[in-house]
Design a protein around this nucleic acid. Structure first.
Lengths: 336, 336
DNA sequence: AGCAGGTGAGTGACCGGTCACATGCGCTCC
DNA sequence: GGAGCGCATGTGACCGGTCACTCACCTGCT
């Protein structure tokens, strides 16, 4: 089933069929109609590989992401896919192993061709690592935690959510409720540098002249939050905990409950992301909503412009928005 | 950068390069090494489009899924991707609009070529619809809620989790705790037929001779569960609610709390899926764990065998497993 | 009438691989 | 020592499209 078959049925040359398919001008209306009928009746679909090989722009991209079961990555992927779909780009996905260093050769095999455009969701270490391993001739946009400063990576296009402001807002909210300070249960860092959220948290503390407790290193899942928090919640001087994401916050809340600490009476807990379940936890979780889908759309938009400078500029993402619910409240703790 | 360039550098013909790339036998070791060196030094990567066009099996597939922010779909996708990756298949993703009927032509455009293999995650109506619209020459495997009986769809390969047994188990568990009956807050049905989970629930009720309250039609999100449950929880004779998924269950629990009904004292709530947060809700949610990743792996395996009968048979999925936590308990309600 | 210019359609080469087949060489074996 | 064979390698055609070019024909102008 090729354009030649269609051409035969329509009684024209294969080139004319190609013209019709690509909406080229200078095809007589009658001819065009005849070709379209032939296409319909044969159920013809052009072969992407052939078209691509012959030099037509590929209109496809590959997303490199780690664990899509995490809300942030999954939502970003959705944003990318949605934007790509409206621009008629095909989206391929490769999931990176969360615990393994990505392999350069394997990574390259996943790319359809030299020059295949890539979006890397690089919120964690494997993603950042993969970003570095990509061949230099690859157009790539990275969704990252923070803009790099002067790293080699900075030659690449990047997009990010303003984690620093997000963390600062949450911290300010908690301090505004009267807490002496805010403890921070961080996500594993994606780079050797200090994470933006950590900086934002410190911004908030410093602006209020609050003490700066050491950051607690955690994981991505509720379980890691739960484990890391058991120590924290046993300390009565801890009255406000900011968590790296909502899942972790749920784990912290459970640890608090088990330690007999009431939320928000004895302990305020806040998260990041605003996952769909956040409003339905008990108590409903105060969190910072992050526009991951917008980030995904932005990433695609940047990539699109990289390939075709006449493509429209992507819409900006929503600013991080604090969503105050029930899990944070005035300090009423047992001690200071 | 083509095999011809590599050939020139290695001092062999392009065909020999092709042989080396494809691990063909009958290439002298010395030659092979020379070619490999040339490939490495040039950073050569074969062009997938060219290879595919020239008749090599494509080793790619497209996943059609609706909203990947739902745990079931996201996990199934992950399973597919993982299995595909180990078999060196590229995975393209197209997300279907949850609220729109998929368009036949648009769907076909998303397929790379006639004959592109497809996995449809058809848990909901758009997925089931998309399945029907796929061209007949497309190898397709569907992850569905239930095996079709005698429908046109049945000519396709299918995989499913045993929702009926899952629902029956949860229902039996609740009845075993002394509840007169179990109310069921269902997911939107994907077909016109009675859902498997509904049947399993009825199985459980009938085996115990329990009354059969009408099924309540709900949605997929916590919010829909919350809204649908407000009426249900106001009725004191309702002491056990089985929910279509964990998100919905979280919504129901919130509605119950607001109605002053204690869980599990006044009301037992159970869900489906066992999302990562389920164990960290308050109270921790009793649910039926469903092996979505296994389902995804199975789907890929079936598709692989469809394309290549000598491919290994996929491992079976885990059986649905009831995970009893805190949200279900003995009936102790105010009335009967 | 003669010619420039535009329109609709066709021809051949090519993209980067693969396949089927041809070839050259060294070996065994009668 | 030549036939027969297997191994290593090279040659030409082809996959299904696109591009650059050519060509036939019609129109309108001088």
């Amino acid at each position: 089933m090729t354009i030649r078959d269609v051409a035969r049925v329509a009684g024209v040359s294969y080139q004319t069929v190609s013209r019709v398919i690509n909406g080229h001008a200078s095809v007589a209306d009658a001819t065009r109609r005849r070709v379209e009928d032939a296409i319909d009746s044969l159920g013809f679909r052009p072969n992407r590989a052939a078209r691509e090989l012959a030099g037509k722009a590929a209109r496809s991209l590959t997303v490199l992401t780690s664990d899509t079961s995490l809300y942030g990555a999954a939502s970003t992927l959705r944003g990318i896919e949605e934007a790509a779909r409206t621009a008629c780009f095909a989206v391929a996905v490769t999931v990176l192993d969360r615990h393994a260093v990505p392999d350069r050769d394997e990574l390259r095999t996943r790319l359809a061709r030299p020059g295949e455009p890539v979006v890397v969701i690089a919120f964690d270490a494997p993603g950042v690592h993969a970003l570095r391993l990509l061949p230099a001739d690859t157009p790539v946009v990275a969704a990252i935690e923070r803009p790099s400063d002067g790293e080699a990576v900075s030659t690449r296009s990047q997009a990010w959510l303003d984690d620093r402001i997000a963390a600062a807002r949450a911290t300010r909210h908690l301090l505004g409720l009267g807490h002496r300070t805010v403890h921070y249960l961080a996500l594993p860092s994606s780079t050797a540098q200090v994470a933006q959220r950590t900086l934002g948290w410190l911004d908030g503390l410093r602006a209020a002249g609050a003490p700066e407790p050491p950051e607690v290193e955690g994981g991505w899942t509720p379980r890691t939050g739960y484990l890391a928090a058991r120590e924290l919640v046993a300390n009565p001087s801890v009255t406000a905990v900011l968590c790296g994401n909502d899942d972790v916050a749920a784990g912290v809340m459970r640890a608090a409950r088990e330690a007999g600490r009431h939320i928000p009476g004895d302990l305020s807990v806040a998260g990041f992301d605003d996952v769909p379940l956040a409003a339905f936890l008990a108590p409903a979780l105060t969190t910072v909503r992050l526009d991951f889908e917008g980030l995904g759309r932005t990433c695609f938009g940047l990539l699109h412009r990289l390939l075709d400078p006449s493509a429209p500029a992507p819409d900006p993402c929503d600013e991080p928005a604090l969503v105050v619910r029930e899990s944070t409240g005035p300090r009423r703790g047992t001690s200071g």
